[in-house]
């Protein structure tokens, strides 16, 4: 059975945090207090909107770069550049930007999973690589694969290092 005072304290605590959006129900069989957290679902919807809006920018930027950068010899330079730049900025968006500008987790998710997540692409990378194999440009294929695998890992690590440096500088001043 439920101790009334405990329920009161708990609900008062929850109400302080979640204001009007929390719904309480008590399960008749187990007499357990269920909290239907409407607040959380509002956050979820906000996250989706943020990811969608930032995704528009990221995807548009990717398409623009693919249209602008065309290598004359068929080497998929645009996709390589997109992925390498994206991996660098993913670390910055995860480690540096939310701490520097005190962003909410919604906007932070939008920046990392939305903006950079839709900017970088794995499917186009695979398609470009297989196109090189089909056109018998095996040297290009090897270079492309090597550059993407190690370049993106290296850029991710560089991004982590840079954001750590920038945060340290921030603490000094």
């Amino acid at each position: 059975m439920i101790d009334d005072s405990a329920v009161y304290h708990q609900s008062a605590f929850l109400l302080q945090n979640f204001s009007k959006l929390t719904v309480f129900t008590i399960d008749a069989n187990t007499s357990k207090l269920n909290v239907i957290n409407a607040y959380e679902s509002v956050i979820t919807i906000k996250r989706y909107i943020a990811v969608f809006l930032f995704g528009i920018i990221g995807g548009g930027a990717r398409y623009l770069m693919e249209l602008l950068i065309v290598a004359p010899n068929g080497f998929p330079f645009s996709t390589l550049l997109i992925n390498i730049i994206g991996c660098f900025f993913f670390s910055i968006m995860v480690d540096y930007i939310p701490k520097r500008f005190a962003l909410s987790s919604t906007v932070a998710t939008g920046l990392s999973a939305g903006l950079i997540g839709s900017f970088t692409t794995f499917s186009t990378f695979n398609l470009d690589a297989i196109k090189l194999v089909v056109h018998h440009q095996l040297a290009f294929f090897a270079i492309y694969l090597f550059c993407t695998i190690f370049g993106s890992l290296l850029m991710n690590l560089t991004g982590r290092k840079v954001s750590r440096r920038l945060l340290q500088k921030l603490e000094v001043f």
Binding site: S91, S112, I116, G117, S118, F122, S123, N156
Partner: peptide, 13 residues
């Protein structure tokens, strides 16, 4: 849709 669906940055992270 598919270019935005797949991601290399999260994979590397």
């Amino acid at each position: 849709v598919i270019g935005g669906f797949t991601t290399l940055s999260t994979f590397n992270d």
